[in-house]
């Protein structure tokens, strides 16, 4: 409750800051449609704040990022969407590669480090999520954990690693692994996980809960689920472990946003993205969703290592789109 109040205060401050912006006056009363791959629970308050501050009316279509990307691809240049706000770079990349996103102005792209945006400037990262190993600190010591995800196919980990193979973030990780290690190695790894009888879960939050409740010792997840749990419960025993070697398993995956080339509301759409990159919004991501803010100078939630201290693999993020469906195929083929 207290944190929500704090966020509101911060956002109001930003609103004041935004009010001075030149563009804001001219877009007041306009209407934009946002396809949001990020759930209403996570970004709903932020969007309301934007509507309140800018006077722009926002209609949001909430669904999975991949689903929305596929929808935009099908809609083509007739898409009713103005902004695509996605959970993962693969979805953004798919739309960008189909030339449906317009190139963003440098003043937006420059806000975040280039490695978290499209190399051609068609979408910009808004927040980051690191892949981690959640582990039950009462049963496993961080020192015993392997140095990369590949170590988990060793038979000593049989039945001890939880994964969510159908979950979007896992698939993005598999896609990254295909780009970094090649298809065969990725398939072998997936088969290894299958052979190791890794328990499967529908989503990351369930893995973290299972780890914390002692049902499974470790799990491959995104970093922020642990913090969400800690915000609700006091006696959390699970911990995050960040791989120190740069592999797909230590990827920092940005959520991001781009503007549809077909949009007739370019100014309002830019204002929306500018809002997402504003300090207040970045604070919101840090304090409310426990993600990494990507704007330098905004610090992550306390207890998180600094983003530039992480071992992040070098990857053209938009290219993930080209192998996303292959990732699904491989997961299916491995029998997960």
């Amino acid at each position: 409750m207290k944190r929500v109040a704090l966020a509101v205060v911060v956002l109001t401050l930003v609103a004041a800051a935004c009010g001075n912006d030149d563009g804001a006056g001219s877009i007041e009363g306009s209407k934009i449609t946002v396809y949001s791959g990020r759930s209403e629970d996570l970004v709903g308050p932020l969007i309301e704040q934007f509507e309140h501050d800018s006077g722009v009316n926002v209609a949001v279509r909430y669904a999975g990022s991949t689903e929305l990307a596929a929808t935009i691809l099908e809609e083509g240049s007739g898409s009713p969407a103005d902004v695509f706000f996605a959970q993962d770079p693969a979805s953004l990349g798919a739309v960008a590669l189909a030339d449906l996103l317009t190139e963003l102005p440098p003043e937006l792209l420059e806000v975040v480090p280039a490695q978290f945006s499209d190399s051609n400037g068609r979408w910009v990262g808004t927040s980051g999520r690191s892949r981690v190993v959640a582990y039950d600190a009462t049963r496993v010591s961080a020192a015993d954990l392997p140095t990369t995800e590949d170590g988990f196919t060793d038979s000593v980990w049989k039945g001890r690693v939880g994964i969510a193979p159908t979950n979007g973030s896992f698939l993005s990780f598999v896609a990254a692994k295909i780009l970094l290690d090649g298809e065969q190695a990725t398939l072998d790894w997936l088969k290894g996980m299958k052979a190791n009888a890794s328990p499967t879960f529908p989503k990351n939050s369930a893995i973290v809960a299972a780890v914390d409740e002692g049902q499974v010792e470790t799990g491959l997840v995104n970093h922020y689920y642990l913090f969400r749990r800690k915000a609700e419960l006091s006696d959390v025993v699970a911990e995050n472990h960040f791989f120190e070697v740069a592999t797909a398993g230590s990827l920092v995956m940005p959520a991001g946003a781009g503007i549809l080339a077909s949009s007739s509301q370019q100014a309002a759409a830019r204002a929306f993205i500018e809002f997402l990159l504003s300090e207040a919004s970045q604070e919101y991501f840090a304090s409310e969703t426990f993600e990494y803010p990507l704007r330098p100078g905004v610090s992550p939630y306390e207890g998180l290592p600094a983003i530039d201290s992480l071992a992040v693999p070098i990857l053209n993020l938009s290219e993930l789109a080209t192998v996303l469906d292959r990732a699904t195929d491989l997961v299916t083929e491995a029998g997960l």
Binding site: G64, T66, E67, A69, A70, L73, L324, T328
Partner: peptide
């Protein structure tokens, strides 16, 4: 398949 793939 609908929500998890780009190819429908």
């Amino acid at each position: 398949q609908y929500s998890g793939r780009l190819d429908r």
